[in-house]
Simulated assay, not measured.
Amino acid sequence: MSKEIIPAGQSISIAVLFISGSSLFMGASGESGNISWIALLLAILLAVPLMLVYSRLHVLFPGKDLYDMLIAVFGAVLGRMLSCLYIWYALHLGSLVLRNFGEFSKTVALTATPMIAPMLVIGLLCVWVVGAGMEVLGRSSKFLLLFSLMVIVFIELLSVPKYEYHHLKPLLDSGWGLVLRDTAGSFTFPFAEIVIFLGAFNVLPAKGSARRVLLSGTLIAGMIIIVVTLRNLLVLGPDILSSLYFPSYVAVSRINIGDFLTRIEGSSAIIFVTALFIKASLCLYVTCNGVSKVFKLKSYRSVVLQMGLIMVYLSGFIYKDIMEMQYFAYHIYKVYALPFQVVIPVMLWITAEILSRRKSSKSI
């Protein structure tokens, strides 16, 4: 089977849609109210050094993905054990994304339809595109990102008459405590979730493409999330914003241009579906890639259907209701995801640097 290579432009599109993903509709962690956008800025600043660590791993291990790195640095036994942890994390994250869409459909869009139906449709679509290959996912993401940006700009322009700028005041009235708490939440969800992309580093071109992809993806997605968060805050206000499960849908539903252009929240729902489709597809690919590496299969394609159905099935019972979903996303997830996003990658990077310097000194 020929090796799949995705150009940097398509990889950036995947990274942007992956990071923005669920945050476009669920919003970022928002306990700080009218200064949640400051927490987002701080989270982006924290994410930049982490992206440099991830990109350094690509330089140290060109042409290898996360599972190859773990096995090469920590050995066959410990490396495969850590790989199994990342297989679980990718599978779990994909299930969380599908459940976000299921709860959205049940709460807002398709209230009379069983929640498993829309999740199964998206899950099977992810199975199809991952089975077709990462090159198909890359080309699809480039088109979907262009479409999403056009819709976002259009909606933002229409929302300007609804802006209430007094919602931004008073600034920092509750102190820095809530801001720092929201910074930690926004750092882990969604920015540091791009650690999943390390499981697909084998499809990136060599020579520094990872740094361009990760930094560009983080900055572009961060700008999109900040713009959407500010729009929701200016339209709805901090009190209403904190009480909603899907604030973006409600904010867009308030657009009314001369009683002619109304009820356009369906267009924003399309953006949500496209972003979560790319995010769930990448999670599925990384899961299947990890299974093929740990169990030494010839191709990841042989387990795409099985892992996709497991992902859909897991998303069906992972939460009891939407309140538990939101509590996990904003309170538990920041602790649960930190070892996968920061601790293990930093340990991998430090160990790889030590081994690389020892190898170079011996060669000298």
Rank of each mutant, 00 (worst) to 15 (best):
W88P: 05
M223C: 13
V59E: 14
I38H: 09
K296P: 00
V130G: 04
F272H: 07
V73C: 06
S29Q: 05
L241M: 13
F25T: 05
T188M: 14
A8S: 13
M69Y: 08
I226D: 11
F25D: 00
M307E: 07
S281F: 01
I35E: 13
L219D: 06
V16P: 07
I225P: 13
G79L: 08
A8T: 14
I224Q: 05
F154K: 02
D173Q: 14
G217Q: 09
M347T: 08
R181K: 15
L230W: 09
G133P: 07
S105H: 00
G237S: 12
W37P: 10
I226S: 11
G102W: 10
M134P: 00
L282Q: 04
L276M: 14
F18M: 02
L149G: 12
I196H: 01
K296D: 08
R56S: 15
M325Q: 13
D321T: 07
G266K: 07
L149I: 14
E4P: 02
L78C: 08
T351S: 13
A76P: 12
G102K: 12
V273S: 10
P205M: 05
L230K: 13
I278W: 09
L52Q: 06
A221G: 08
N232L: 00
L93K: 04
R211S: 15
L157C: 15
F143I: 15
I226M: 14
L50W: 02
P118N: 06
M150E: 00
F201S: 01
T113F: 01
S216P: 09
L78A: 14
V121K: 03
I220L: 10
D65L: 01
V121Y: 09
L146K: 03
S356N: 12
K106W: 06
L60Y: 05
C84H: 06
S20A: 14
F340I: 03
M311A: 03
D321A: 07
E31D: 08
R211D: 09
S267E: 00
S13H: 09
R231C: 00
E193V: 01
R211K: 15
G175T: 04
A329D: 03
G30N: 15
V291M: 09
L98D: 02
V59A: 09
Y163P: 04
L219W: 05
I257Q: 11
S242K: 15
R358K: 11
L338I: 08
L241R: 10
S363A: 12
L137V: 13
L17D: 04
A28N: 15
E353Y: 02
P161I: 10
A76G: 00
I278Q: 05
F260P: 03
V160Q: 10
K3R: 11
V108S: 11
A251Y: 11
S292E: 09
I19S: 09
A184T: 10
A117P: 02
M51Y: 03
W37S: 06
R139H: 11
L60D: 05
S140N: 09
G199W: 01
R212N: 12
L110I: 03
